[in-house]
Design a protein around this nucleic acid. Structure first.
Lengths: 248, 248
DNA sequence: TAATTATTGATTATTTTTGAACAAATTAAT
DNA sequence: ATTAATTTGTTCAAAAATAATCAATAATTA
């Protein structure tokens, strides 16, 4: 078995387990540990994995060209719950839009094995869904290096050409009175464009964003079809009263 | 059995199994291993498969997520020379197009600190130029997971909306008689679209591609404004005679 | 038909890969 | 903090694979 071949399997193991020990690799590949170490070393210098004492980790979420790491660290578990819930709403064969928020990004792990079409402006999403079952359509336009996403007028026009079943979006603030708000104009207009191109709009908001208004309010609360959150039941009744279905 | 014949069968075996050893090929074709090695070597330089120690792999399996930045790249040093030369042609403030070839990708390291605008359909290029001086415009459309690039009709339309100073392109084959050729239709049409959107077209071709015709010839040699290569002076006179300026 | 060229196969030399043994470094435990 | 255990780095030898060289065969051409 060649090195390239082992490389495949090593990456596959890491993809599944997240991390593994030298022993595990050696056993799975039926090869000596010293060889595994050499493989891991080279793959680490090639930037394919993160070498640990006694084994290796995959470095997709942790430290890659894309580092949502800092953001994702906060409330990671809570966000994952929201994302799992959201992902369950997606049927095989559907087309969905995903925006460039850190919460929405965490949906990737739950949709990898679905046969769906994802349209997105988020580079981390693209990276995460690469080599998965998902067929990806990337929105074109100017790249915002800070947000690691595509934005701008061209991007919005691109979005307008499509019509999808569901859009999964994040916002910086949401309140029953003033609707949706964001920190930047670009984010707001992309979110609006995506919402227009979708039959049903899902907004993923952890409890910290509920009832808050941020820098720029850009859309009425009626834009929301479904609110997916981890808030308490008592905090979402106001949204239910406005005709929004809420998933907790 | 002729080489052409064996080539077909080798590719078929790889298509089915993904990878195989020299022994397997030798057995399947009932021919000596040394001959198989020679076949594989030539096919590898033609870019039809990936050579491993002891056998060969399908190209798509060999290229892993966003790491054809790799050092394993064939002729990396020679390609770097070509790229350095090409990068020197770019002035501050210009807009350029870059396609998704592995040679063009290697230009990234030489343009990181220029204040220019890059339009590209290559994800590795985007990642490489992320967090650099360069302002990036990503072409939108369907993602080709194998080539790690955007392609398709939407992508071509996106390209058509722009007009840039220079385009840096790669092809799989180039000959004075038949012009430019590629392995796939998608690659060819993207290359054409880029060439149309650019005032001046630079083609980056290492010596192994000169004088070769591949699967699909898609454009006359007149599409080339500048040929950047590492070939010998005597091998490029024919191109100079056709009015193409050649950089060596 | 003879001469030339290209292709194939065999042999040998070189390189690459692998595994083992031991020293050095790192982690864990007392 | 010091010792024990584990992991890693280094060196070396064996095995496998490849490259290089040369002879033999097949194909082509004059």
């Amino acid at each position: 078995m060649s090195f390239q071949n082992r490389k495949q399997i090593i990456l596959k193991i890491l993809e599944e387990k997240g991390e593994a020990e030298v022993k595990d690799f050696a056993q799975a590949l039926d090869i000596s540990e010293i060889t595994i170490r050499r493989d891991l070393q080279q793959m680490a210098t090639d930037g394919l994995l993160f070498r640990t004492h006694g084994g290796a980790m995959k470095l997709s979420l942790a430290q890659m060209p894309f580092t949502f790491a800092n953001k994702t660290a906060v409330n990671a578990k809570e966000k994952d719950k929201i994302c799992k819930l959201a992902a369950q709403q997606i049927q095989e064969g559907e087309s969905i839009l995903m925006d460039c928020g850190s919460t929405v990004f965490r949906m990737c792990q739950f949709i990898k094995n679905k046969r769906i079409k994802v349209i997105t402006n988020s580079l981390p999403v693209v990276y995460e869904l690469m080599n998965s079952q998902v067929s990806i359509n990337l929105i074109g336009g100017e790249i915002d290096q800070e947000r690691q996403a595509v934005h701008g007028k061209i991007a919005e026009e691109h979005i307008a050409r499509y019509k999808v079943d569901k859009a999964f979006l994040g916002v910086d603030g949401i309140s029953p009175e003033n609707g949706l708000s964001a920190f930047g104009e670009d984010e707001a207009s992309i979110t609006l464009a995506m919402a227009k191109a979708s039959a049903k709009n899902y907004f993923l908001c952890d409890a910290s964003k509920l009832g808050k208004d941020k820098y720029l309010t850009f859309a009425p609360i009626t834009l929301v079809d479904v609110l997916v959150t981890n808030a308490l039941e008592e905090d979402v009744v106001v949204y239910r009263e406005k005709g929004i279905s809420v998933l907790i």
